[in-house]
């Protein structure tokens, strides 16, 4: 067994080896379908699986420093260090996943608003679930719309990001609202606390922190513009919730 190409250490590390097999060895024999008189394949031909570390493959993508391997890590990291997640190009998070974060966060938030009213008045469970549904719509379509507004404003002041990036980043900013919402829901259901403001609003307020980091990136580091944008978007979110859920 010999290696055709191992000219540099980098090539060796990236696994770009070609295995040169002598004629008649098992590898060269099955690299293509057998073709000899009288042979009829019983099952459709399948190439043997590439051998890890030896088979030629596509060049490896450039490594991303400390990029989270799973989207869930990006959610947690967005709470603690949003700048790091943005620097890593928002990880590998597709926009539907990012929107599902804000969607679930607002569904739980709206659900808690209904539960708070259920504790003190004649509000039924169906009403609570309908509110949760409304929250889900608000957290996906509403947040996407607010992100689109932020993107439009950012274009006016020289922002270069794509709308898809802005929607992903803004939606993912609500990861803290999601965590606060889950904790609040536990206290609401098991201890009958009124948690929509103490946990729900707090979570949404905490989301302003990552959002301002996102807007700082969006406005090319202009602090005053990012603060103005965060104020505008935060007010829209709060007024939307106040209008729909209270």
């Amino acid at each position: 067994m010999t290696f055709e190409r191992a000219s540099s250490l980098d090539a060796a590390r990236s696994g770009q080896f070609h295995m040169a097999s002598p004629a008649g060895s098992p590898v060269s024999q099955f690299a293509s379908p057998p073709n000899f008189p009288g042979y009829t394949p019983q099952v459709p031909w399948q190439s043997p699986p590439p051998v890890q570390g030896f088979a030629p493959g596509p060049p490896m993508p450039p490594p991303r420093a400390n990029a989270p391997k799973k989207p869930w890590w990006s959610i947690l990291l967005m709470m603690v260090s949003p700048g790091q997640v943005i620097a890593q190009g928002l990880g590998k998070i597709p926009w539907p996943f990012a929107l599902s974060v804000s969607g679930v966060a607002f569904a739980i938030f709206f659900f808690q608003t209904g539960l708070d009213r259920h504790h003190v008045g004649p509000v039924g469970w169906i009403h609570c679930f309908l509110l949760a549904l409304l929250g889900g719509v608000y957290g996906t379509a509403g947040i996407a719309a607010i992100a689109a507004v932020a993107w439009s404003i950012s274009r006016l002041i020289g922002g270069q990001q794509t709308p898809e990036w802005v929607i992903r980043a803004v939606a993912l900013s609500y990861s803290s609202a999601l965590v606060y919402g889950i904790v609040g829901l536990v206290f609401n259901l098991f201890f009958r606390w009124n948690t929509s403001i103490s946990f729900g609003v707090t979570g949404v307020l905490w989301a302003l922190g990552p959002m301002m980091t996102v807007f700082r990136q969006l406005t090319n580091g202009k602090l005053v513009h990012s603060v103005a944008l965060a104020t505008f978007c935060g007010a829209l979110v709060l007024l939307g919730w106040g209008l729909l859920a209270t």
Partner: peptide, 16 residues
């Protein structure tokens, strides 16, 4: 300066 959005939101929450 990041306190500005929170102040505006507090005003909205209190007054509206």
């Amino acid at each position: 300066l990041f306190l500005i959005p929170y102040t505006v939101l507090a005003l909205i929450a209190d007054q509206i």
